[in-house]
Every structure is written in structure tokens, then in C-alpha cells.
Computed example of a mutant assay.
Amino acid sequence: MKTIGVGHGTGKIILMGEHAVVYGEPAIAFPFRGVRVTATFNASAHNQITSSHYSGLLADAPEALQIIQQLTTHLCQQFDQGPFHLTIESTVPSARGMGSSAAVATAITRAFFDWIDVTLSDTDLLTYVNFSEAIAHGNPSGIDAATTSGSQPIYFEKGKDFEAFPLNIDAYLLVADTGILGRTREAVAAVAQLMKTKTEYTNHLIHHLGHLSRLTKEAIIHNQPHELGQYMNFAQEDLRQLTVSNERLDELIQLARDNGALGAKLTGGGRGGCFIVLCQDYQSVTHIQTQLKYAGVKDTWMQGLGVYEHV
């Protein structure tokens, strides 16, 4: 057993296929290392936690942190481990569709196994993170657990196993927060209503989004950033037609394109929340980031891809 155990988890974004995935079309989720969680375990007289939300005895933590209490209790019982002090540092924004709860569970699990000096397999990591996600969300798809604990894009369809594929595209990805809370439930209901009232047209949009997910996978594998940017732009227009974008998203996405983005689209549920911007190089991404901040976005995060990943 080590004196201190440390573990990390990353955020995630939906790159392509949101809303269409509900109707059986493929979607792609992406580990986003522009935001991350770090967890640290060390021995203590009592189970304690230090975090930005709460610091003190874990037993007295607010309801929002009870998921952490249940996961750590589960781990300690399985490995007959004594009391601990857990520290959590996170830059993953909550309620923004970036996999915050799964990233926290990933970091905690990795830190715990590092602390007790036991090898953690990828399969076991997913099991523990999905245990936590089931408490948080009831019946999770598992995609957040797979992406926040992995290093590759995930291609998935309803009812099928996830498929990881190589990340091989030379570009930068910028994620920007509009500052408006997303309205996922409302957006999903709106698409369902369109499916009833304009079935043929809505099906066409849904199928096209699925087609764009397939093309996106190939563009990433074959290092085609310009094609990927174009597919993102096409997807944004489909999502706008499905009424899951809004005026603020449209305005900011157009601003990014006007300032040199290869492509831009909303990510997640829509009607607020975040959007993503694909940029050719570092100069481009910093310029667009500045312009978006002038326009009032709440926050931005960037990640280098391909050859830029470790620059």
C-alpha cells in the first residue's frame, strides 16, 4: 500500500450524432482532455473529503456527493480498506454534457487502486464507473464511462457494443460554453413531436445525421480535418432544422466560422449548453477563442489532436 494514491479522469463531448442516436443511428463520443479530474487518497482517522463543493466528513456531505460516498464505501468493503482522506480537483463543468460524474468516478477508482497498489484492468475500471453512473443516472448508456476512462473516440449505436477507433486527425478542438443551461429533455421532446407531425422530413434529417457520423469516423481515421469540419457544419444545420439549436448557439457558431473555424456545431442536448469548434492550428484556435470571449461565452477549453496532442 502506498502513502498516497493518485488518479485522473477526463471530460467527454459528443462529436457527432446527438439526438439521432435516440432513433438507432450511430453517434461518436470523444474523450476531451481539455478538462479533467484528479483524485488523491491517503490514510486518515475518518473518511473525509476535500473538494470545491464540500470539505469535511464524508458522512456529512451533501446529497450531491452521496454518489462518491457509495463508490468509496463499495471499494473499501471489497478490499477491506480503512478510513481515508479523499481530495478531488476538477475542471470538468457540471451539467454541461461533459461527463462530470463519470470523470469523477474514473479518477476516484484509479486513485484508490493506486493507493492500495493493485493493478486495475480496463474492464474493472468500467465496472466501477458504471456502478457509480447507475447510482447517478439510473440507467446510463455507459458511453460516459467508456469515454472518460479511455483515450480514443467511441462509435456507438443503440443496442450494440461500443467501438473504439484510432484518433488520427491533426487539428485542435475548442469547446465553448454559451453560459445558458442546456435543455436536453425539452429538445428531445421537440424532436419526438417533429417525428409525429413531419415524419418523412424528420426521418430524413435523422438518417443524414447518422450518415455524417459514419463519414466522421472515416475522416478521423484518415486524417481529414477539412472534411470533418464540413461534416460538423452539415450536422449543425440538421440540428437547427430539428429545433435543438437556438439563436445564441447559431450566432456564436457562425462567429467561429467567420473567424476561420474548419467547422462548428452544438454538442449534447442543445438549446443552450456547449458547442464545439474544429480549428486548423494553434494560431487559429487562440484567435477564435479570443473572439468568442469578446462575444460573451462563459468559458472555453481546448485540446490538441493528432500531432498537436502533446505539443
Rank of each mutant, 00 (worst) to 15 (best):
Q230C: 11
A187R: 08
K217E: 07
Q291H: 07
F113W: 13
A111N: 02
N168T: 06
I143A: 12
G306E: 02
P140A: 05
S51Q: 02
Y172I: 02
G268S: 08
F41L: 07
L120K: 04
A103N: 00
G11A: 08
P140R: 08
L212H: 00
S245K: 11
T50M: 08
L266H: 05
N130A: 05
G229E: 03
F41D: 06
Y23Q: 07
G182I: 05
I68A: 06
T184A: 08
G273C: 07
G99S: 07
T73G: 05
H226Q: 09
E227C: 09
Q69L: 11
A111F: 02
L255F: 12
G34M: 02
Y54F: 15
L125S: 06
I221C: 09
P153Y: 00
A145Y: 08
R240L: 14
L194V: 10
S121R: 09
I108E: 04
T38M: 13
A27F: 11
K217M: 10
T109P: 15
T197M: 10
P31S: 01
T197W: 12
E25H: 14
H287I: 07
L228N: 04
F32S: 00
S121F: 13
L262C: 09
T10D: 04
S101D: 04
L181P: 14
P166S: 06
S101V: 05
R96L: 13
I68T: 15
E18R: 10
V311F: 09
G269E: 09
G82K: 12
Q66C: 05
T127L: 07
I28R: 03
S121N: 09
M1N: 00
G138V: 01
F30M: 13
V22R: 00
L120V: 13
Q152D: 05
A187V: 08
V37Q: 11
M195I: 12
T184L: 14
R248G: 01
V175D: 06
Q241G: 01
V175G: 02
L266S: 01
G82W: 00
P62F: 04
H211P: 00
I220R: 02
G179I: 14
T3W: 01
A219P: 05
I68V: 15
A107V: 05
I154Y: 10
V129Q: 13
A176R: 12
S245T: 13
G179D: 14
Y231M: 12
K158C: 02
L181D: 11
L228V: 03
K217T: 03
V118W: 00
I88Q: 04
T109N: 12
G179Q: 14
L125G: 15
Q289I: 03
F79E: 04
I28D: 10
Q230R: 14
Q66W: 08
H207K: 12
Q241M: 10
I67F: 12
S100A: 09
T72A: 05
V118N: 01
A105T: 06
H207G: 07
T109V: 04
S213A: 11
I28K: 04
K265C: 13
T178A: 10
G99D: 09
V104T: 09
R33M: 11
I220H: 07
N259G: 11
S101G: 03
